[in-house]
Design a protein around this nucleic acid. Sequence first.
DNA 1: CGGCATCCATTTTGATACTG
DNA 2: CAGTATCAAAATGGATGCCG
Lengths: 222, 222
Amino acid sequence: VDRSYGQYCATARTLDIIGERWTLLLIRELLTGPRRFKDLLSNLPGLSTGLLTARLKRLEHYDIARKTLLPPPASTPAYALTPAGKELEPVVLALATWGMKHLMDAPGDDEVFEPSWAVLGMRACFDAQAATGVRASYEFRVDDDRFHADIDDGTINVAAGPAHQPDAVISTDRVTFRDIASGHTTLPDALRANTATATGDRALLRELARLFRLPDRARASS
Amino acid sequence: VDRSYGQYCATARTLDIIGERWTLLLIRELLTGPRRFKDLLSNLPGLSTGLLTARLKRLEHYDIARKTLLPPPASTPAYALTPAGKELEPVVLALATWGMKHLMDAPGDDEVFEPSWAVLGMRACFDAQAATGVRASYEFRVDDDRFHADIDDGTINVAAGPAHQPDAVISTDRVTFRDIASGHTTLPDALRANTATATGDRALLRELARLFRLPDRARASS
DNA sequence: CGGCATCCATTTTGATACTG
DNA sequence: CAGTATCAAAATGGATGCCG
């Protein structure tokens, strides 16, 4: 039940552990914060409860994720990455970066979308160079979901949940947000079309386009 | 036969294409240069001819690899990465970096090892900072295999084949090379034990330890 | 050598029903 | 809600035979 590539190679050994189907997407989910069993299921359509259990067990066994309790008043079980698990972020961001450059044509009719995925997208698109000396806190409200990006002199922290002291707040719906995140429209265009609204520091809002750069699209193979 | 995650997400789309078993290891092989069908088979024990054919077809379909002819006098068919395929190097290096830090205990009795894998390891361990202003060409001879690393002011190019004008040449056997690459011994120790020999620029040989740094081992979970 | 095709045993998966 | 248990469908692997 434990199929290994049988190679003394760092890449192969990593893939022995996290190379199975669903595992890297599961890690993607956990990279934006602790998640409950049912939320993992609903964000990974097609994954069955049994397989999710097996994957989580495996991640626990290798000290990549851990079962925890959400802080009160929730006090409900959830899964969170360990430090070793968080160190897999470069792997997921590298996959995302390549995908953004080569694969992000229009969404398929049957493709689902979760705003939290764009949280990782922002980490991948963040331009640390452009952010030197910049200090800003943005809050994003997408329907009922909200998350925030805190930027401080070349570093960024994007996570789920509201910002503590946002300098600017952007509100929009899921479809518009998806189109902005994928480069099919821009925030200024959405503001003009009234599908998005923004409040707060005007100058910092204009900075957004400079801080997050989508890669030039290279091709659109199917 | 084409199972997709069905998510509008760059990570998921990338995994739709290269997430199947064997695919990333196949890309690892091609990242060190064009390879013939039989060499791919022999470096990926357990992969069958039919599955290798299927994987190569898929990579060709997505313009990640291409079937080419090796230059004369060989003139034999081989597979090489396209530019888009080479851009997957950060993915493989990220996997390797994590694996080196967390998983590289002693080799299992049944684990195979190919020196070419260490070529990628060198790219992953290369410290661009430490190499500013350094210009050097190293050749490595591992039994009959040879490859080279050319360093020029913070950039590195590691590939199979001999160096054009090596400043230093290191010769050793596969086992010793494996132990050096995995941090279980060091080049100076191997030289003292006469399991490795080195000729050429002494100063540049000493530089090696500074240019390539293995990560601190974090744990050794099985 | 460089593949493609076929057959078959074994694993992995996906869907669904079920329990504390 | 958080999982277990079950079963059918699909993917994989290994061997082998064939052909240019």
